[in-house]
């Protein structure tokens, strides 16, 4: 960690310190709407980072990451509702459950040589299969959803994530910053280099003694476990879970937008992507809402256009260009 700070360019250090200070102090000045948008940005920066680890670093395309969000959210919510176990403990079970799903998918995919588009379809198939399964699962309330009740007496119980907006704002900030730090550290580790070797050329990586199967399994297990933490955050922030909302393929796609726009395989890509996309999307919703146009549709059309433009014109994302422009080289790349 100290090592990371030491090698960062001076300008980069100033920008990071300034950004963190502003975000920490912002609730003093900003209104509820700004805080809610920023909380959403943190959420997408966090889950985007988890996906980035698997796609951007290890080169494995998953289009079913909503599965891990859903499993994480449902496990923690159920433990809270049925057993009275709070999310700080529940998150461990949530991570374990999602990582087990990730390991199962990874094992099938990597053991049987399902790669590229086929692997992506395998991840979609698992997510969709689970979505329909949860639609019919009585324990979780089926398609009618699972609700975390609002209880007056529990407000302020931050240890049970029963708090107001600020609690989730700071929790989201900690998650997003923590994930960026974790990915930066892992990118510079032995495993991080092995991931990149497998991403670039699996045959050549194996010829250098890298156990590609083990390395890819590590990526999918870490990524799915990390994503599940986002799911717990989601469940306790929104206080409701519907299979059709959490597991949907559109959710999986929503979660990969930020790293793609920001820059795959970079530490700051998902962060920048979330900061660019989320406010634009939310702003568009607000503006078109005033004109009475179907707002969610407009936001999605905008996301679609952004995807096409970015992938056509800047397939390596916004961040590498920004970094070059301002002399902030991303060392972890």
């Amino acid at each position: 960690m100290i090592e990371l700070w030491r090698i960062a360019p001076p300008r980069g250090r100033i920008v990071i310190a300034l950004a963190l200070a502003v975000l920490l102090a912002l609730p003093l000045a900003a209104d509820r709407y700004v805080i809610s948008v920023l909380t959403l940005i943190f959420y997408f920066a966090y889950v985007g980072q988890a996906w980035n680890l698997m796609m951007g670093y290890a080169g494995q395309l998953s289009l079913g990451h909503a599965l891990y969000v859903g499993v994480g959210g449902y496990v923690a919510a159920l433990m809270w509702l049925k057993l009275g176990i709070g999310p700080w403990l529940g998150v461990f079970a949530a991570v374990a459950a999602a990582a087990a799903f990730g390991a199962a998918i990874g094992w099938l995919g990597f053991r049987f040589g399902i790669a590229g588009v086929y692997f992506a379809l395998l991840t979609i198939a698992f997510a969709e299969f689970t979505r329909i399964g949860f639609d019919h699962l009585e324990l979780t309330g089926g398609a009618a959803g699972l609700f975390l009740p609002f209880e007056e007496k529990r407000i302020g119980e931050w240890w049970n994530l029963r708090g107001g907006q600020l609690l989730f704002y700071y929790l989201g900030l900690a998650l997003a910053a923590g994930a960026a730090l974790l990915v930066a550290l892992m990118a510079r580790s032995r495993l991080g280099y092995q991931w990149r070797a497998v991403r670039e050329d699996e045959t050549a990586a194996r010829a250098l003694g890298i156990d590609a199967f083990a390395v890819k399994m590590a990526a999918v297990v870490i990524s799915s476990g990390m994503t599940a933490v986002g799911g717990v955050f989601y469940a306790f922030y929104y206080n409701n879970l519907f299979p059709s909302q959490v597991f949907e393929i559109s959710r999986s796609i929503e979660l990969i937008l930020a790293p793609i726009v920001g820059g795959l395989g970079t530490v700051f890509g998902p962060v920048i992507g979330a900061f660019v996309l989320t406010p634009l999307g939310e702003g568009l919703t607000a503006v078109t809402g005033r004109f009475g146009i179907n707002a969610p549709g407009v936001k999605a059309v905008f996301y679609g256009v952004v995807l096409i433009v970015i992938i056509s014109a800047m397939p390596s994302g916004v961040w590498p260009r920004l970094a070059a422009l301002f002399g902030l080289k991303d060392h972890a790349r």
Partner: peptide, 10 residues
Amino acid sequence: FILLVGVGII
């Protein structure tokens, strides 16, 4: 994939 996902979303 991403290009056509974009087309589909639109």
